[in-house]
Design a protein around this nucleic acid. Structure first.
Lengths: 124, 124
DNA sequence: TAACTGTTATATGTCTCATATAACACCTAT
DNA sequence: ATAGGTGTTATATGAGACATATAACAGTTA
């Protein structure tokens, strides 16, 4: 399920967060469902438990998952809304990137093609 | 001219690289022109010379600027092409971001608006 | 010669990321 | 009640990136 690249420039705990958020968005994990325990995911990925815990703790703080001591971690009911809202917050970053690309002379058509491609993958 | 945010998560030397590339793209600095010396920029920004040198060295390796010992650093003649090409390489990243936003339910119209905005700022 | 320029080198400090390890408390099924 | 899973907290350690401090050497130019 999870796949971590230890050589990546983005920290492992960030990769875990991103992947879990993606699983929530695409329905791989539903609200209320339990996610892999700190120790089991630690073993599965050959990663230190503290690294998993760091990812889970931050997701907990964001209100995306919650912990039940002795039982495990579960996806919050409103997790989808929170993750979506976080993506909205990145729109300004997107605008900055687009401005850069426009300045670099990348054709608008090239961008529009990519937008269309991204938005046709779910219309079915 | 240059403005560095020491508190930013992106390293100072990266910020310098990005800003210089932007200055080249928008014509603030033309090919063949001399850029601030390592020491002068170091003083101006209150940053260690080695940090400036790291940024310049990497831009040198990329073929965007070149050094003349005893004289200074200058912008390469084909700098514009190289910087543009680098932006093209980031198109796949853009596609990934767009896919994320589509998955998060951000309306396509919202994206298209931003694309249009980015591409109308230079059509005059 | 003086005052710039790039170049190279070493040492130091700080922070983030990740690991190693341990201990404690809670829950649940046997 | 015990065993084995769970979360929780804590400390120590190591590696690497980033930035600083400092120095010395060489080339260019007025």
């Amino acid at each position: 399920m999870f796949q971590i690249d230890a050589m990546s420039r983005t920290p492992m705990y960030e990769q875990i967060k991103e992947q879990l958020e993606k699983f929530i968005l695409n329905g791989t994990i539903a609200p209320g469902e339990q996610i892999p325990s700190v120790r089991s995911l630690s073993l599965q990925l050959s990663i230190n438990p503290n690294t998993i815990l760091k990812a889970y703790s931050e997701l907990d703080t964001q209100g995306i998952i919650y912990s039940v001591p002795g039982k495990g971690y579960f996806v919050c009911e409103n997790a989808l809304d929170i993750v979506s809202a976080a993506k909205y917050d990145k729109l300004d970053e997107l605008s900055a990137v687009l401005a850069d690309m426009a300045l670099a002379g990348i054709p608008k058509e090239e961008i529009l093609q990519r937008v269309n491609k991204a938005y046709t993958k779910h219309d079915r």
